[in-house]
Computed example of a mutant assay.
Amino acid sequence: MFALGDLVQMKKPHACGTNRWEILRVGMDIRIKCMGCGHMIMMPRQEFTKKMKKVLTAAADVAAANEPHYVQPRPLDPPNTGL
Rank of each mutant, 00 (worst) to 15 (best):
P44K: 15
R25Y: 12
M43N: 13
Q9P: 06
T57W: 11
Q46G: 08
N66W: 03
G36F: 04
M43A: 15
K54W: 11
L83S: 07
M28T: 13
A15I: 00
P44L: 14
P75S: 03
A65S: 10
A64S: 09
V26E: 11
Q46L: 09
A64G: 05
T18V: 05
R25I: 09
V8W: 01
E22M: 14
L4K: 10
N19M: 03
E22R: 11
I41D: 12
M28A: 14
Q72H: 11
E67H: 03
T49C: 09
W21M: 01
G38T: 14
C34V: 11
G5Y: 02
I30K: 04
L56I: 06
M1I: 05
P78N: 03
Q72K: 15
Q9N: 10
C34W: 07
A58T: 07
T18I: 04
V55M: 02
G27T: 10
K53M: 00
N19F: 02
G17C: 03
V71C: 14
A60C: 08
A63F: 10
M10K: 00
L7M: 11
I32S: 04
V71E: 15
D77F: 12
C37A: 02
A15K: 02
Q72G: 13
E47F: 10
A59R: 05
G5I: 05
G82W: 03
I23T: 08
V62I: 03
T18P: 06
I23A: 07
E67C: 04
M42L: 13
M42P: 09
M52F: 00
Q9S: 11
M28E: 15
A15C: 02
D61H: 13
G5M: 05
P79W: 07
A65Y: 06
E47P: 07
P79R: 06
I41S: 15
R31M: 14
H69R: 13
F2T: 13
P73D: 07
L83D: 08
L56E: 04
R25A: 13
C16A: 06
M40R: 14
I32N: 02
M42I: 14
K12Q: 02
L4C: 08
A59N: 02
A59M: 02
H14D: 06
L76S: 05
R25C: 11
A3C: 06
P79N: 05
W21E: 01
L76N: 04
L7N: 10
L83G: 06
F48Y: 03
R31W: 12
Q72W: 08
G82T: 03
M10G: 01
C37V: 00
L24T: 01
V8K: 02
R31I: 13
R31K: 15
I41A: 15
W21R: 01
D61M: 13
D61Q: 15
V71D: 14
A65H: 08
T18R: 09
N19D: 02
R25L: 12
R25P: 07
V71W: 12
V8A: 04
M28C: 11
G82C: 03
P79S: 07
G36P: 08
F48G: 01
G36H: 02
M28P: 12
A3V: 07
T49S: 11
A3Q: 08
G5W: 02
R45I: 14
Y70D: 06
Y70S: 03
A59Y: 03
K11S: 01
L56P: 01
I30W: 05
P73F: 04
V71K: 15
N80F: 11
K54S: 15
R74D: 06
L56N: 04
